[in-house]
Design a protein around this nucleic acid. Structure first.
Lengths: 232, 232
DNA sequence: TGCCAGGATTGATAAATGTCAATTGAAGGG
DNA sequence: CCCTTCAATTGACATTTATCAATCCTGGCA
């Protein structure tokens, strides 16, 4: 593990307030791996041996059933993933696959649980992270159950716009096939949804999206902080 | 608060391992309320002032958007609910309403957070509860995104059957209108779904469901522990 | 016992979404 | 610079799901 990876990891909310001692104990057992694109990092149903921290690259989290597959989330650096499985010492519910070249820190789950018991600050951070994660899945469920696919897309675009800084244009973070899966629709349906949103001033050029009339799109999308604010 | 409520609460996984001291401190600030049916306990978006513990009765957790409403979960005694909001000190993402007469303990959120900091055993229990909750919402998301409504119903029936002890017959825990909303469909569609499942040996008589040929239903439903096992 | 209210069901129809097949178009490799 | 490849789009059609309206049932109550 390169020593210059330390500060990046240390800066994460999860590790920020740990005691120096405990942090180093965690890092001693951890190691970094580099992966090419399209590599499976985690398979559904496997025991959760490691907490993963993504340092570079993009990773997708997905699930399968009966021959179908759906994208549940994507992670961007620097983030941890699959914390709940680590804590519960339970099998992974999602699979993870690199979308690009990626650099990942693997921390043995056992060490994480030990650090949790030893360091109250770390325990607090884990709870905060889990509560946050829980709330964000609940928001996603509300999005899925209360909105049509067109409404989900409209609100997704507004969220991405905000994340990109609020300007009129931004790039989709991955291809449209994945976006369709994330939003719970087919690529064909997504294409048509984009076309429908032209009526509200949404223009696309490849992966670039321009929101011509924010107010108009919001009138249709009716974004709501209890669904769309993914920070609280 | 009636002293004979104590043991019941104390026995919950969340409180079981607390120190006597801290548990009593929590209970000092807590109070019990009795509610008639159809009363709003919690409204979406309100600050989370209390952790709720349901002692008796049934409570539904639902969410609304743009004039629509969907049932997200129901709780039965003895359970806590809305822990994540309490921990994060963030607004409730779901509303809660009594379905029957209900007896509920209200514990000030502040006290819960204080107890978390003071008592490592309680902290561990909270983490376990949150991780569990998180995983169960993820399972629900997989159910929603990977399965058709007919498949969701079939698997729901298998889960309820298991919960009821595995016999051939059991009663639905609430009316079909609510079940439809929980499964993400309309009551009309649920009616038709029940009729479709007759082909796999499912017979209904009002709220009573009989699974005639378990293996046959499972062949259609394809239950999967990574979606349907709601205990790990 | 008979009446009512509200959930449940059914039928007819509409809307949303998915599937299949063909075509377009853009990016990367030889 | 052309060719290959694969994502994206489009059109036609099928399936799923929702909506609307009517009717059926059932449990509570006068």
């Amino acid at each position: 593990m390169r020593p210059d990876d330390f500060p990046e990891i240390r800066a994460l909310p999860l590790f920020r307030d740990m005691e120096e001692e405990g942090f180093h104990a965690l890092m001693r057992g951890a190691y970094v791996q580099n992966f090419p694109p399209q590599v499976d990092l985690i398979r559904e149903g496997e025991p959760s041996d490691f907490l993963h921290v993504l340092l570079d690259g993009l990773v997708e989290l997905f699930a399968t059933w009966n021959g179908r597959e759906t994208l549940l989330a994507t992670t961007r650096p620097v983030t941890t993933f699959i914390l709940a499985a680590t804590i519960r010492d339970a099998p992974y519910l999602m699979a993870a696959r690199t979308m690009t070249r990626a650099r990942v820190v693997l921390i043995p789950s056992e060490d994480v649980r030990a650090a949790f018991d030893a360091d109250p600050a770390f325990a607090r951070a884990i709870v905060a992270d889990l509560a946050q994660s829980y709330r964000s899945v609940v928001k996603n469920t509300k999005d899925l159950k209360l909105r049509s696919s067109l409404e989900r897309l409209a609100n997704y675009l507004l969220r991405e716009q905000r994340r990109a800084g609020g300007g009129g244009s931004f790039d989709l973070p991955f291809d449209k096939r994945r976006l369709a899966s994330l939003l719970g629709m087919t690529p064909e349906n997504l294409s048509r949804a984009f076309k429908s949103l032209q009526a509200y001033g949404v223009v696309t050029d490849g992966g670039r999206v321009t929101i011509g009339d924010q107010a108009d799109l919001e009138r249709f999308a009716r974004p709501n902080p209890l669904i769309d604010d993914r920070t609280t």
